[in-house]
């Protein structure tokens, strides 16, 4: 595996009601990593930590092998960011907002920005206050994609976008990747990442519970569906997530071949979708 473009080790941020606990992950160049988790799991806090928007209680962040805490201002020139709810000065025109933003990013490509504005159906003369949430997100995307970025950080960028545009956008992300670039994409819309993300990281209750290649996850993990009579204490404990209903159970295993061998024809054992993983991962037994 190449040297990670972004490396997080033991990131901890304590709030009164929530703690991001010792989050670690590696993002290699040339890859798209999906950051999945339910609302309030800690995805945004993790992204904010990368962008220097929160003061960490512990942990280290390196980008291109350099400490982000020490060289943040310099390194952030190579990081583009699209927030979940982009905010702009209401009275400013889009062209003005671009003029205020572009000088901070040496490789900002004016021609590409104009092309993106046209492609995304945005008029530079419009004022920020006239835009809907979806249009604000589109505008934030034009600014980010016109930068000469090495890391593109996206915080739920497809929320509020129509399905047609969303599909086009995801295609653009895939095309924008090359051997020096990587994308970190936070979402809870799992279909955006299915078969598209090289790596998937699951965050739950402030913890990174799983981070691996999508291929490895789907090769090793499985969803088990069967009757309640199959559940006993050792089986419950072996599952990584379990949901019981009056009619049966649905569980997650990190040992697909072993589970198939154990249950045989008694239970349905299949490869999980990302949604299965999102729903079941970390869900406590007896829940």
């Amino acid at each position: 595996m190449p040297e990670p473009l972004l490396r997080l080790r033991g990131l901890t941020k304590r709030y009164r009601a929530f703690t991001l606990q010792e989050a670690s992950l590696d993002l290699p160049p040339g890859s798209l990593m999906g950051l999945l988790g339910p609302n309030g799991a800690g995805k945004t806090t993790l992204l904010k930590a990368i962008l220097g928007l929160v003061r960490l209680d512990a942990g280290t962040l390196t980008f291109q092998g350099r400490d982000l805490a020490q060289h943040g201002a310099e390194l952030r020139r190579r990081i583009a960011f699209v927030p979940d709810t982009p905010a702009f000065q209401p009275g400013a025109r889009l062209a003005t907002l671009k003029e205020a933003h572009a000088p901070f990013y040496p490789g900002f490509d004016e021609t590409r920005w104009k092309g993106l504005m046209a492609d995304f159906g945005l008029d530079p003369r419009r004022k920020a206050q006239e835009l809907s949430l979806g249009q604000r997100t589109r505008f934030a995307l034009t600014l980010a994609l016109a930068q000469d970025w090495d890391l593109l950080v996206l915080d739920e960028p497809t929320t509020g976008l129509d399905p047609v545009f969303r599909r086009e956008l995801l295609q653009r992300f895939s095309e924008a990747l090359d051997e020096r670039r990587a994308i970190l994409f936070s979402t809870h819309i799992t279909s955006d990442l299915e078969d598209r993300a090289d790596f998937v990281t699951f965050v739950r209750d402030g913890q990174v519970v799983l981070s691996d290649t999508q291929e490895a996850i789907k090769g090793r993990w499985g969803v088990v569906k069967g009757g309640l009579d199959l559940l006993d204490e050792p089986v419950r404990r072996a599952f990584k997530g379990l949901r019981e209903t009056p009619h049966g159970f649905e569980a997650l295993t990190d040992n697909l071949p072993g589970t198939r061998a154990h249950f045989g024809e008694q239970a349905l054992v299949e490869r999980p979708s990302l949604e299965d993983l999102l729903v079941l991962l970390g869900r406590k037994a007896h829940a």
């Binding site: 220097g52 928007l53 952030r76 709810t85 702009f88 901070f104």
Partner: peptide, 17 residues
């Protein structure tokens, strides 16, 4: 007030600046 403080802080500038 306009929620743009985050955008200011994300820019590649130091707190000293």
């Amino acid at each position: 007030h306009h929620g743009t403080l985050r955008e200011l802080h994300v820019l590649p500038v130091t707190p000293r600046q």
